[in-house]
């Protein structure tokens, strides 16, 4: 669906994205992860035509996206920052969205307004941060755009509304298949939503893989450090906490049945590493291959 080749973007002398290569498939939910300043928002803004990249190619079903209305009309970005309207009422903002999104579903919008108990007669700037986020979420969901992007969709939302949004999104994507990209810092909450995860680090795509493949490689090993090390020598250790002879080791690598059995026989506790922790350790700069 989306093909990004060799894409780079700088702000003045500051490089934000360098040689980005990405392929996004149809009808998948992607998680776009990265530390603050990793270039997530810049990448998303380039995808939706709001920013121009310095170099590289960006295609939607083989057609250039930039200034191509056939491509752009199928993409909706819900930004973490407020919608650029000053004094308008929520009702009017929805009317604008209805005018501009070709696949807008008015009936579904009405349903979402009721679900989120949103007062559409209020002025947008007078809404709480959470309700401003809800306006964006409703636009994203009701736009029915083939590619819908949510940049920090949970900003200011309480837990109940966050989970309501995740449920609504899953329900809607099942009924109306489309590609969704979610950029968020609340990774654990949305791990079940993601089919694939893209991690940006140091201006580049550091990792892109299915969630199941990534989580499968993430382990916490808790036990005697020497015992752990003797089994996982040469594997990718992403975290280490030592307490005397004991240690908790974070591993990002595959462990076969034999290795797991060996570790257990040496009293090493093996537990899966949550995606959030995995992301934190992977994006820290102390990743190393033990024994290499």
């Amino acid at each position: 669906m989306i093909e990004i080749r060799n894409l780079s973007k700088s702000y003045g002398k500051t490089k934000v994205l360098t040689d980005i290569f990405l392929n996004l498939e149809d009808n998948k939910i992607y998680g776009l992860l990265g530390r603050n300043g990793a270039g997530k928002t810049t990448l998303l803004n380039i995808v939706v035509n709001q920013l121009k990249c310095d170099t590289g190619e960006l295609k939607y079903y083989g057609e250039d996206i930039y200034e191509n209305s056939k491509a752009v009309e199928n993409i909706c970005l819900v930004k973490e920052k407020s919608i650029p309207v000053d004094d308008d009422k929520v009702k009017r903002i929805f009317d604008m969205a209805k005018t501009l999104y070709k696949d807008w579903d008015e009936e579904y919008k009405e349903y979402l307004v009721k679900e989120f108990s949103l007062n559409v007669r209020k002025k947008y700037r007078k809404l709480s941060r959470g309700n401003q986020t809800i306006v964006g979420l409703i636009i994203g969901l009701a736009s029915r755009a083939r590619l819908t992007i949510f940049d920090e969709p949970s900003l200011g939302l309480d837990a109940a509304y966050r989970y309501k949004f995740y449920d609504l999104l899953l329900e809607d994507v099942e009924k109306n298949p489309r590609t969704v990209i979610i950029s968020t810092h609340l990774i654990d909450e949305v791990t079940n939503l993601f089919e694939e995860v893209i991690i940006l680090k140091e201006e580049k795509v550091y990792l892109k893989d299915e969630v199941s493949n990534i989580v499968e490689k993430g382990y916490f090993l808790n036990g005697n450090y020497e015992n752990i090390l003797s089994v996982i020598k040469g594997k990718n250790i992403i975290h280490k906490e030592e307490f005397g002879a004991s240690a908790v080791v974070g591993l990002f690598d595959l462990l076969d049945g034999e290795e797991k059995a060996l570790l257990r026989s040496r009293n090493v506790e093996i537990s899966p590493m949550p995606l959030q922790k995995l992301f934190v350790y992977l994006t820290e700069n102390n990743i190393k291959k033990e024994g290499h």
Binding site: V48, N49, Q50, E67, N68, S69, V72, E73, N74, I75, C76, L77, K79, I83, P84, V85, D86, M96, A97, L100, Y101, I139, A145
Partner: peptide
């Protein structure tokens, strides 16, 4: 100052 940011944010091309 009012319409351009909204239009571009809501998937309109600059050309249109």
């Amino acid at each position: 100052y009012e319409y351009f940011p909204v239009a571009i944010s809501f998937s309109v091309t600059r050309k249109d």
